[in-house]
Nucleic acid binder design. Structure first.
Length: 368
RNA sequence: GCAGGGGUGGUCGAGUGGUUAAUGGCACCGGGCUGUAAACCCGGCGGGCUAACGCCCUACGUAGGUUCAAAUCCUACCCCCUGCA
C-alpha cells in the first residue's frame, strides 16, 4: 500500500469502522488508505479460528487496503478493572462473557499474525497519564521487556510465514509480509520517555509509536511529550501518535513531527451527535438547529453536506434513526481525512505554518 | 338512565392525611466522549427573584368543606372508560 503522511487512520476495532461501509472508506471522497483493527476484540470475537479459516482480517472484512492492528495493550489500560498484570502477560476477564483469558506479547503477535495486518503493534502497557514516576518506570520497563519479546516472537512468525494475509508478492517486499512498530511509554516523565525511546530504538522496529497519551493527562503535557520525542525518533521511520486526537491535536502533533494518527473521535462522536467542522465542533442535538437548512459545514465538500441540512440530521438523531449515526460518521471522517489531505498539500507547498494558523483561526471561531 | 372503575406535572404512570414541587419511564433541554466494554454516559427539567445560602408564588378534573395539616377524607358538579338497559 502507498500511504502518504501525515495520515489519519479511522478506527475499526471489531473489524468495522462503525457506521461506515468499506465502499465509502475507499471512495475518493474519504479515500482512507489504512484503518485499524484490534487484537483483543477480534481475539475474543470472532476468535482466531474463525479469522484463520476466513483467510485473515483483510479477506474476512473485505478490505484490500492497509490494516494496522493494535496489540491489545490499550485494553490493559482501558479494561483496568478486569485484568491482572504479571511479568508474563495479562490475565483478563473477557468483557464479553466473563471468561478468563491470558494475553502476552507472544499471544498478541500470534493473533496479529493470524489477522495478517500490514502493521503489527508491539504489546505494551499503557500507564495512566498522571502515573507517578515509580509507577511509570515500572510500567515503562515492562513495556520495554515486552517489546523485545514481541520482536522475537514476531520474527519467528515471519520466518515461518505464519501470517494469514501473506502472499508471495507480500513476502517479496522489502520488509516482508508484516511490519512491526514499537511503542514508547513513560507517562508524563521526560527522563522515562527518553529512556523508553532509546530502549525501543535499540530493539529496532519498522516504525515507532508514542503511546500513553490522551489518557487523562493535561493537554500541555501531551504536547510537551510529543515535542520531546518526535524530533528524536528515527527520521527514516514513520512516527505514530496513538489515539490522538481532535483536529487541533493533529495539527499540533504534525508541527512537532508526527506522521500517523488514529482516533475514535470522528466515529464515536459522530454516533453520539457531535459533528466536526472547519469551524469547530457542532452538537447536532442542539435546539438551535431545529429549522436550520444549512449543511453541517458550508465549506465541506462531502456528500452529506451536499445533500442534507442540520435540521434534517437533528431530526434523524432525535428520532434515534440509524441514518443519523451513519451520516454524521461519514461527515466526520470526511472532515478528518480532508483536513489531513490539506495538511499534506500545505507541507508539500511549504505553507504549513500559514495553513495551521488560518485553520485554527477559523476552527476556534466556532460554528454560526 | 343504572352499576362499577377512573381523572396527578409535556406525556405515561407511582403515590391514598404530615420533610410532596410530588418516585419512575419517556419526551424535551444542556454537557461530555482522544490506540472503542460507548448508536454511550452525566446533568437539568412548574414559575419568579438571587452572585449564592435561600425566599416567594402556583400546582394532583372543577367548586366547596373537614383538619394544626389534603393529591390523599367528605359533598356537589364536569369529563372519560367498562358492563347492563
Amino acid at each position: 500500500a502507498l500511504i502518504e503522511t501525515p495520515v489519519f487512520m479511522p478506527v475499526g476495532t471489531a473489524g468495522t469502522v462503525k457506521g461506515t461501509r468499506f465502499d465509502a472508506l475507499e471512495s475518493p471522497e474519504l479515500d482512507a488508505r489504512i484503518i485499524l483493527g484490534n487484537t483483543y476484540h477480534l481475539w475474543l470475537r470472532p476468535g482466531v479460528d474463525v479469522l484463520r479459516a476466513c483467510g485473515g482480517l483483510h479477506r474476512f472484512i473485505g478490505w484490500e487496503r492497509a490494516l494496522l492492528t493494535d496489540s491489545g495493550g490499550f485494553q490493559v489500560w482501558s479494561l483496568g478493572a478486569l485484568r491482572k498484570l504479571k511479568e508474563e502477560g495479562v490475565e483478563f476477564r473477557s468483557h464479553v462473557d466473563g471468561s478468563a483469558r491470558f494475553l502476552s506479547p507472544e499471544v498478541s503477535m500470534e493473533v496479529q499474525a493470524t489477522l495478517g495486518s500490514d502493521i503489527v503493534m508491539a504489546f505494551d502497557e499503557c500507564a495512566p497519564g498522571e502515573a507517578a514516576h515509580e509507577v511509570a518506570r515500572t510500567s515503562m520497563e515492562l513495556t520495554a521487556r515486552w517489546a523485545a519479546r514481541s520482536r522475537a516472537r514476531f520474527d519467528e512468525l515471519q520466518r515461518e510465514g505464519a501470517d494469514a494475509g501473506s502472499t508471495p508478492e507480500h513476502h517479496a517486499s522489502v520488509n516482508g509480509a508484516q511490519a512491526l512498530f514499537g511503542i514508547v511509554q513513560g507517562a508524563a516523565h521526560a527522563d522515562l520517555r527518553l529512556e523508553s525511546l532509546a530502549r525501543t530504538v535499540e530493539i529496532g522496529f519498522d516504525g515507532y509509536a508514542i503511546g500513553g497519551l490522551s489518557v487523562g493527562e493535561e493537554k500541555p503535557v501531551m504536547y510537551d511529550t510529543i515535542e520531546l520525542l518526535a524530533p528524536r525518533m528515527p527520521p527514516d521511520r514513520p512516527r505514530y501518535l496513538m489515539g490522538v486526537g481532535t483536529p487541533e491535536d493533529l495539527l499540533a502533533a504534525v508541527t512537532r513531527g508526527v506522521d500517523m494518527f488514529d482516533c475514535v473521535l470522528p466515529t464515536r462522536n459522530g454516533r453520539n451527535g457531535q459533528a466536526y467542522t472547519t469551524r469547530g465542533p457542532l452538537n447536532i442535538k442542539n435546539a438551535r438547529w431545529t429549522t436550520d437548512t444549512r449543511p453541517l459545514d458550508e465549506d465541506c465538500a462531502c456528500s452529506v453536506c451536499h445533500r442534507h441540512s442540520r435540521a434534517y440530521l437533528r431530526h434523524l438523531y432525535l428520532t434515534g434513526e440509524m441514518l443519523a449515526s451513519i451520516l454524521l460518521t461519514h461527515h466526520n471522517l470526511a472532515c478528518f481525512l480532508d483536513t489531513m489531505r490539506r495538511v499534506r498539500q500545505a507541507i508539500r507547498s511549504g505553507n504549513f505554518a500559514r495553513f495551521q494558523r488560518e485553520f485554527l483561526e477559523r476552527y476556534n471561531a466556532g460554528v454560526g
